[in-house]
Amino acid sequence: MNPKPSAGQLAAEVDTPVVISAFEEKSPTFTSLAVSLSEIRKLKGVIGYILRSETSALIDLANSKEIVDYAMLSSRIVESSVEIAKQFNIGETESILAEGTNIKVLCMDIGNNKIAIFMEKNASHFWIIKRILL
């Protein structure tokens, strides 16, 4: 049986991923999420994703020019949503879905890892949530 590929190996395999920083520590959760996200990225309608931990980041977006905009937006979505969630006492945030006119963003926190997946509006985010939580 082949060992699971490391996130670094994955980065090389995905079409044009942009690795923002080297992986300083090998977190099994980060590696596992990277594998899941590389599979999700191949789904129809998925535009790209950002995976961040405290020490590493992996970004794969179709339009690399908008990386900064997407990264900033996903951070703001999480920050604002956490504030709103506190206000209405719905407990710790599991997932956030922000929908624009044509694109939607799914944000999730898995341990110390923050995920943002960008997809077309007709893509199934329910399936993606299930896949990540597997």
């Binding site: 949503s81 969630a85 006492n89 710790e92 945030t93 922000a98 929908e99």
Partner: peptide
Amino acid sequence: QVIEGLESLTIQGVEG
């Protein structure tokens, strides 16, 4: 703007 405006937001929490 990058997603052409915000039409809806769903926050799923542990309790609501």
